[in-house]
Protein backbone atom coordinates (compact mmCIF):
# COMPACT_ATOMS: atom_id res chain seq x y z
CA UNK A 1 0.00 0.00 0.00
CA UNK A 2 2.56 2.57 1.06
CA UNK A 3 5.40 1.38 -1.19
CA UNK A 4 4.35 4.02 -3.66
CA UNK A 5 5.14 7.11 -1.60
CA UNK A 6 4.61 9.97 -3.94
CA UNK A 7 7.35 12.33 -5.07
CA UNK A 8 9.88 13.98 -2.80
CA UNK A 9 7.52 16.50 -1.40
CA UNK A 10 7.13 16.44 2.33
CA UNK A 11 3.86 14.89 3.43
CA UNK A 12 1.47 17.37 4.96
CA UNK A 13 0.41 16.73 8.52
CA UNK A 14 -1.94 19.62 9.36
CA UNK A 15 -5.55 19.18 10.42
CA UNK A 16 -8.22 19.67 7.75
CA UNK A 17 -10.53 22.67 7.39
CA UNK A 18 -13.79 22.16 9.16
CA UNK A 19 -16.51 20.70 6.95
CA UNK A 20 -19.26 23.15 6.00
CA UNK A 21 -22.21 20.97 6.90
CA UNK A 22 -24.72 23.50 5.58
CA UNK A 23 -23.12 23.16 2.17
CA UNK A 24 -23.20 19.37 2.35
CA UNK A 25 -26.62 17.69 2.53
CA UNK A 26 -28.17 17.30 5.95
CA UNK A 27 -28.75 13.77 7.23
CA UNK A 28 -32.53 14.12 7.55
CA UNK A 29 -34.07 14.98 4.17
CA UNK A 30 -37.55 13.41 4.24
CA UNK A 31 -38.28 13.92 0.54
CA UNK A 32 -35.50 11.33 0.04
CA UNK A 33 -37.48 8.76 1.98
CA UNK A 34 -34.75 6.31 3.01
CA UNK A 35 -32.96 9.11 4.89
CA UNK A 36 -35.80 9.31 7.41
CA UNK A 37 -34.82 6.19 9.36
CA UNK A 38 -31.13 6.30 8.54
CA UNK A 39 -30.22 9.78 9.81
CA UNK A 40 -28.89 10.45 13.32
CA UNK A 41 -31.26 12.55 15.45
CA UNK A 42 -28.66 13.68 17.96
CA UNK A 43 -26.03 16.31 17.27
CA UNK A 44 -22.65 15.24 15.93
CA UNK A 45 -19.79 15.50 18.43
CA UNK A 46 -17.29 18.05 17.12
CA UNK A 47 -13.62 17.33 17.55
CA UNK A 48 -10.45 18.81 16.11
CA UNK A 49 -8.64 16.27 13.93
CA UNK A 50 -6.31 13.88 15.70
CA UNK A 51 -3.65 11.78 14.01
CA UNK A 52 -6.37 9.14 13.50
CA UNK A 53 -8.12 11.42 10.99
CA UNK A 54 -5.12 13.32 9.58
CA UNK A 55 -3.59 10.08 8.31
CA UNK A 56 -5.19 7.78 5.78
CA UNK A 57 -4.40 4.98 3.36
CA UNK A 58 -2.59 5.79 0.12
CA UNK A 59 -2.77 3.38 -2.78
CA UNK A 60 -0.01 2.50 -5.22
CA UNK A 61 -0.40 2.06 -8.96
CA UNK A 62 0.34 -1.62 -8.46
CA UNK A 63 -3.36 -2.14 -7.66
CA UNK A 64 -4.41 -0.92 -11.12
CA UNK A 65 -5.07 -3.20 -14.05
CA UNK A 66 -4.57 -2.01 -17.61
CA UNK A 67 -8.30 -1.48 -18.29
CA UNK A 68 -9.40 -0.28 -14.86
CA UNK A 69 -10.06 3.21 -16.29
CA UNK A 70 -11.84 1.96 -19.43
CA UNK A 71 -15.40 0.88 -18.66
CA UNK A 72 -16.10 0.44 -22.38
CA UNK A 73 -13.72 -2.51 -22.42
CA UNK A 74 -12.99 -3.72 -18.88
CA UNK A 75 -15.97 -6.09 -18.79
CA UNK A 76 -16.37 -6.64 -22.54
CA UNK A 77 -15.61 -9.85 -24.38
CA UNK A 78 -12.45 -9.68 -26.50
CA UNK A 79 -13.04 -7.55 -29.57
CA UNK A 80 -16.37 -6.21 -28.29
CA UNK A 81 -17.35 -3.05 -26.42
CA UNK A 82 -20.19 -1.58 -24.39
CA UNK A 83 -23.20 -0.02 -26.16
CA UNK A 84 -24.03 3.65 -25.61
CA UNK A 85 -22.72 7.17 -26.10
CA UNK A 86 -18.95 6.95 -25.70
CA UNK A 87 -17.51 9.60 -23.41
CA UNK A 88 -14.28 10.55 -21.70
CA UNK A 89 -14.62 11.93 -18.17
CA UNK A 90 -11.61 13.90 -17.02
CA UNK A 91 -10.68 16.53 -14.48
CA UNK A 92 -8.59 17.18 -11.40
CA UNK A 93 -8.85 16.39 -7.74
CA UNK A 94 -8.03 19.59 -5.87
CA UNK A 95 -8.19 20.57 -2.24
CA UNK A 96 -9.95 23.68 -0.95
CA UNK A 97 -6.70 25.65 -1.29
CA UNK A 98 -6.73 24.88 -5.02
CA UNK A 99 -3.77 22.51 -4.80
CA UNK A 100 -3.87 19.36 -6.91
CA UNK A 101 -4.13 16.17 -4.88
CA UNK A 102 -1.71 13.60 -6.34
CA UNK A 103 -2.07 9.89 -5.67
CA UNK A 104 -5.80 10.06 -4.87
CA UNK A 105 -7.67 6.82 -5.54
CA UNK A 106 -10.89 7.45 -7.47
CA UNK A 107 -13.43 4.68 -7.85
CA UNK A 108 -16.56 5.11 -9.96
CA UNK A 109 -19.66 3.11 -10.75
CA UNK A 110 -22.73 3.64 -12.88
CA UNK A 111 -25.68 2.16 -14.75
CA UNK A 112 -25.43 1.24 -18.42
CA UNK A 113 -26.79 3.33 -21.31
CA UNK A 114 -30.35 2.19 -20.53
CA UNK A 115 -30.16 3.02 -16.83
CA UNK A 116 -29.69 -0.60 -15.72
CA UNK A 117 -27.20 -1.48 -12.98
CA UNK A 118 -25.42 -4.83 -12.90
CA UNK A 119 -26.56 -5.76 -9.38
CA UNK A 120 -28.69 -8.64 -8.20
CA UNK A 121 -30.93 -6.39 -6.09
CA UNK A 122 -31.89 -4.41 -9.20
CA UNK A 123 -34.97 -5.32 -11.22
CA UNK A 124 -35.48 -2.52 -13.75
CA UNK A 125 -36.89 -3.84 -17.04
CA UNK A 126 -34.15 -2.23 -19.16
CA UNK A 127 -31.71 -5.00 -20.12
CA UNK A 128 -28.16 -5.56 -19.01
CA UNK A 129 -25.44 -4.92 -21.56
CA UNK A 130 -23.38 -8.13 -21.73
CA UNK A 131 -20.28 -6.04 -22.39
CA UNK A 132 -20.72 -3.52 -19.59
CA UNK A 133 -19.87 -4.06 -15.91
CA UNK A 134 -20.12 -0.51 -14.61
CA UNK A 135 -17.08 -0.13 -12.34
CA UNK A 136 -13.71 1.53 -12.79
CA UNK A 137 -10.90 3.18 -10.89
CA UNK A 138 -7.80 5.29 -11.33
CA UNK A 139 -5.21 7.20 -9.32
CA UNK A 140 -4.55 10.91 -9.86
CA UNK A 141 -1.23 12.02 -11.34
CA UNK A 142 1.27 14.51 -9.86
CA UNK A 143 -1.07 17.45 -10.61
CA UNK A 144 -4.19 15.72 -9.36
CA UNK A 145 -5.35 14.97 -12.93
CA UNK A 146 -7.36 11.92 -13.93
CA UNK A 147 -9.31 10.57 -16.91
CA UNK A 148 -11.41 7.57 -17.75
CA UNK A 149 -13.44 6.27 -20.65
CA UNK A 150 -17.01 5.05 -20.34
CA UNK A 151 -20.47 5.20 -21.88
CA UNK A 152 -22.92 7.88 -20.77
CA UNK A 153 -25.33 6.27 -18.28
CA UNK A 154 -29.08 6.50 -18.78
CA UNK A 155 -31.64 7.93 -16.33
CA UNK A 156 -33.12 5.44 -13.93
CA UNK A 157 -36.54 5.11 -12.19
CA UNK A 158 -36.56 4.39 -8.45
CA UNK A 159 -39.19 3.68 -5.84
CA UNK A 160 -39.19 6.95 -3.88
CA UNK A 161 -42.07 9.05 -5.13
CA UNK A 162 -44.48 7.26 -7.48
CA UNK A 163 -42.67 8.60 -10.55
CA UNK A 164 -39.14 9.59 -9.54
CA UNK A 165 -36.25 9.29 -11.96
CA UNK A 166 -32.58 9.77 -11.21
CA UNK A 167 -30.75 12.05 -13.63
CA UNK A 168 -27.92 10.40 -15.55
CA UNK A 169 -25.11 10.16 -13.01
CA UNK A 170 -21.81 8.53 -12.19
CA UNK A 171 -20.98 7.73 -8.55
CA UNK A 172 -17.51 8.73 -7.34
CA UNK A 173 -15.62 7.55 -4.28
CA UNK A 174 -12.51 9.57 -3.42
CA UNK A 175 -9.60 9.07 -1.05
CA UNK A 176 -7.34 12.02 -0.33
CA UNK A 177 -4.36 11.73 2.01
CA UNK A 178 -6.28 11.74 5.30
CA UNK A 179 -9.22 9.58 6.33
CA UNK A 180 -11.12 12.79 7.23
CA UNK A 181 -11.15 13.66 3.49
CA UNK A 182 -13.03 10.50 2.59
CA UNK A 183 -15.87 11.41 0.25
CA UNK A 184 -18.55 9.79 -1.89
CA UNK A 185 -20.49 11.93 -4.32
CA UNK A 186 -22.25 11.83 -7.70
CA UNK A 187 -21.46 13.51 -11.00
CA UNK A 188 -24.32 14.86 -13.13
CA UNK A 189 -24.31 15.96 -16.78
CA UNK A 190 -24.70 19.51 -18.07
CA UNK A 191 -28.20 20.32 -19.31
CA UNK A 192 -30.02 17.29 -17.86
CA UNK A 193 -33.62 18.46 -17.12
CA UNK A 194 -33.97 15.75 -14.42
CA UNK A 195 -31.35 17.39 -12.18
CA UNK A 196 -33.69 19.98 -10.57
CA UNK A 197 -36.43 17.35 -10.09
CA UNK A 198 -34.33 14.81 -8.22
CA UNK A 199 -34.94 14.33 -4.47
CA UNK A 200 -31.36 13.13 -3.96
CA UNK A 201 -29.91 16.17 -5.74
CA UNK A 202 -32.29 18.29 -3.64
CA UNK A 203 -30.74 16.99 -0.42
CA UNK A 204 -28.22 19.76 -1.24
CA UNK A 205 -29.53 23.24 -0.41
CA UNK A 206 -27.12 25.50 -2.26
CA UNK A 207 -27.60 25.64 -6.07
CA UNK A 208 -23.90 26.43 -6.44
CA UNK A 209 -23.01 23.18 -4.69
CA UNK A 210 -25.23 21.38 -7.24
CA UNK A 211 -23.55 23.15 -10.18
CA UNK A 212 -20.24 22.03 -8.72
CA UNK A 213 -21.38 18.42 -9.14
CA UNK A 214 -22.44 18.95 -12.74
CA UNK A 215 -19.86 18.05 -15.38
CA UNK A 216 -19.47 20.35 -18.36
CA UNK A 217 -19.28 19.23 -22.00
CA UNK A 218 -15.80 19.98 -23.35
CA UNK A 219 -15.70 19.84 -27.14
CA UNK A 220 -12.03 20.83 -26.95
CA UNK A 221 -11.19 17.55 -25.26
CA UNK A 222 -13.36 15.31 -27.41
CA UNK A 223 -11.78 12.69 -29.60
CA UNK A 224 -13.27 13.38 -33.05
CA UNK A 225 -15.22 10.46 -34.52
CA UNK A 226 -14.74 8.57 -31.23
CA UNK A 227 -15.86 10.08 -27.88
CA UNK A 228 -17.22 13.30 -26.43
CA UNK A 229 -15.59 14.64 -23.24
CA UNK A 230 -16.97 15.91 -19.94
CA UNK A 231 -14.85 17.79 -17.41
CA UNK A 232 -15.46 17.10 -13.72
CA UNK A 233 -13.24 18.53 -10.98
CA UNK A 234 -13.54 17.24 -7.43
CA UNK A 235 -12.61 19.27 -4.36
CA UNK A 236 -11.49 17.67 -1.09
CA UNK A 237 -11.00 19.30 2.29
CA UNK A 238 -7.91 21.52 2.50
CA UNK A 239 -5.35 21.41 5.29
CA UNK A 240 -4.89 24.11 7.88
CA UNK A 241 -1.62 25.90 8.34
CA UNK A 242 0.29 24.60 11.32
CA UNK A 243 2.24 27.86 11.79
CA UNK A 244 0.89 28.71 15.20
CA UNK A 245 -0.28 25.34 16.33
CA UNK A 246 1.36 23.12 18.91
CA UNK A 247 3.03 20.32 17.09
CA UNK A 248 1.84 16.87 17.84
CA UNK A 249 3.99 14.63 19.95
CA UNK A 250 6.99 13.48 17.93
CA UNK A 251 6.07 15.55 14.90
Amino acid sequence: MSENRLSNRKPETGAFFQRDREWHPQGYTPWYKTSVLRSPQKALLSLDNTISEITGPVFGHNILGELDHDLIHNFAKPGESAIGPRIIVYGRVLDERGKGVPGALLEFWQANAGGRYRHKKEGYIAPLDPNFGGCGRTITDEDGGYAFRTIQPGPYPWPNGPNDWRPAHIHFSVFGHGFAQRLITQMYFEGDPLIPLCPIVKTINDPVAISDLTAVLDMGATKPMDSRAYKFDIVLRGRRSTLFENRMEGN
Partner: peptide, 20 residues
Amino acid sequence: LNRLKESASQTAGPYVHIGL
Protein backbone atom coordinates in the same frame (compact mmCIF):
# COMPACT_ATOMS: atom_id res chain seq x y z
CA LEU B 1 -9.29 33.98 0.36
CA ASN B 2 -9.23 32.10 -2.94
CA ARG B 3 -10.63 28.98 -1.37
CA LEU B 4 -12.68 26.40 -3.16
CA LYS B 5 -15.66 24.66 -1.60
CA GLU B 6 -15.45 20.94 -0.91
CA SER B 7 -17.50 18.88 -3.38
CA ALA B 8 -20.83 18.19 -1.72
CA SER B 9 -21.45 14.64 -0.57
CA GLN B 10 -24.20 12.48 -2.05
CA THR B 11 -25.48 9.11 -0.92
CA ALA B 12 -23.54 6.03 -2.02
CA GLY B 13 -26.89 4.52 -3.02
CA PRO B 14 -27.97 0.87 -2.93
CA TYR B 15 -25.48 -0.29 -5.58
CA VAL B 16 -22.30 0.98 -3.91
CA HIS B 17 -20.95 -2.58 -4.17
CA ILE B 18 -20.64 -2.31 -7.95
CA GLY B 19 -17.93 0.29 -7.59
CA LEU B 20 -16.26 -0.53 -4.28
